[in-house]
Each structure stands twice: as structure tokens, then as C-alpha cells.
């Protein structure tokens, strides 16, 4: 076999090898990189990757166009549906068109109550920047939350700087928060002080409590 035929015949196989390699790299990278929110009903990254065929039906079914395709090719999650809530949050449709449109088991069809969505958990990640903690009565995240007074409550405490004001601190109740991201979407700061962390990262017991119980 001369060099020319070698390149001609071998190229397809090397490309296939690259595909295979990418998939294997993706398998190893189970942790995911950054905060990636998956649509309502997605059980875990691993389960979604196993069951999602990338048909985009959930993407097209969402009336708010909140879902899009994951385009990070090296993550091994290429083509999986994701939400970037700072751009468009999930508005928790009562009829869950996203789950109902999914032909596979990628999205959990037994989830029928939008209030039981659990895509992640909001965390007040930037306490220094949050207007409410700085004595200003912003509280936007609290007002917009579809589970107001369940997923977010306001905790009153004296404002140390003046000794006269009350601070109304937004505190997230991890058990009720669906991770819809309406709070993150609505935070008026340039960088949102409240962010939804993917479920497996916003460890509901440890991480969340240490943050909300500070100060």
C-alpha cells in the first residue's frame, strides 16, 4: 500500500478514532465543567447522556425557548439539552411540555408536578454584592420566585453598619427550590449575586447551609 492509498483509506478510520476518543474523554469527565443545568426531569448527567438521543424535541417544545443544545464538544456532553438561566430561565410550565415531548427516558416522565422540578438549587453566591445584604431593599429574587416564601424566604436581621435599618436577606430553602433560575435571571446586578448551581454541585445539605448560615 503506497502512501497515497494509506492516507485515503486510513483517514476515515482516524476520524472515527477521534470520535471514539472524544466519547471516551467525555465518559471520564463525569463531573461536568461549570454550572450546567439540564431540563426538568433529567436525573443525572450520566443518565441523561445514556438516554438522550439529541432529538431536540424538548428544545422545540419549550414555549420560552429556555432549553438549548450543549455545544461544548470536549465536554463529552455535546448535543445534550441545557439551560442558561441568566439568558432564559425555566418558567415551570404546569404541563411540562419539555418532559412530555421527550421520546426517551432521558427526562423523567413520572415527574408531573412542576413544583417538584429539581434542576438545581439557587445559592446566594455573592453575599458581598447582594443589594439586600447591603441594606438596600432589592429582594427581587424573592418577589419573582414562583415558590415565594417556600423556596426563598426573607430573613430579617439588624443592619450592623447603621444600627437603624433591617436587612432582609434572601435565604433559599433547598428542599423547595426547583432551580428554575428566575431569581438568577432577575437579579439586577451585572453579575448575579444569586446563582443556580447544578444539583450535584450545590450539595443541598452541606454547601448551601454553610453559605446561608454565614453572617
Amino acid at each position: 500500500m503506497d502512501r497515497r492509498t494509506f492516507i485515503k483509506e486510513g483517514l476515515p478510520y482516524s476520524v472515527a478514532g477521534i470520535f471514539a476518543g472524544l466519547t471516551i474523554i467525555g465518559q471520564a469527565d463525569q463531573s461536568g465543567n461549570g454550572f450546567v443545568l439540564r431540563p426538568p426531569g433529567a436525573k443525572s448527567e450520566k443518565h441523561l447522556r445514556q438516554h438522550c438521543v439529541g432529538c431536540e424535541q424538548c428544545i422545540h417544545a419549550c414555549p420560552y425557548q429556555a432549553i438549548r443544545s450543549d455545544r461544548r464538544i470536549l465536554s463529552g456532553n455535546f448535543g445534550l439539552p441545557e439551560l442558561v438561566v441568566r439568558e432564559t430561565p425555566c418558567y415551570m410550565c404546569p404541563d411540562l411540555p419539555c418532559i412530555n415531548s421527550c421520546p426517551t427516558e432521558a427526562l423523567d416522565h413520572s415527574l408531573t408536578d412542576a413544583f417538584r422540578i429539581s434542576m438545581g438549587t439557587a445559592v446566594l453566591t455573592d453575599r458581598g454584592a447582594c443589594l439586600s445584604l447591603n441594606g438596600i431593599r432589592c429582594e427581587i429574587c424573592y418577589r419573582v420566585c414562583p415558590l415565594i416564601d417556600k423556596a426563598i424566604v426573607l430573613k430579617k436581621s439588624p443592619y450592623r453598619e447603621t444600627g437603624k435599618h433591617t436587612v432582609f436577606e434572601p435565604v433559599i430553602k433547598a428542599e423547595s427550590c426547583t432551580g428554575c433560575g428566575i431569581c438568577e435571571y432577575s437579579c439586577p446586578l451585572d453579575q448575579p449575586a444569586i446563582q443556580v448551581l447544578a444539583s450535584q454541585r450545590a450539595d443541598k445539605s452541606a454547601h448551601y447551609k454553610t453559605l446561608s448560615e454565614q453572617g
Partner: peptide
């Protein structure tokens, strides 16, 4: 219409690429 040529819904009718179906059954063990 929603979806793509892997799997789609046209006027409420589900359509699945047969190869994607086989592939999914193999991957999802289902």
C-alpha cells in the same frame, strides 16, 4: 413539527429514525 431527523413529532405523530432507535435501545439498555 419539532425535533430533527433522529426523532421528531409531525402533527402529533412520532417519527423515529430506525437506526437511532436501535442505537438508543443498545445504549439505554432498554
Amino acid at each position: 413539527f419539532r425535533g430533527n431527523l433522529i426523532s421528531a413529532t409531525l402533527f402529533g405523530f412520532p417519527l423515529h429514525d430506525p437506526l437511532a432507535t436501535i442505537d438508543y435501545f443498545l445504549a439505554g439498555k432498554i
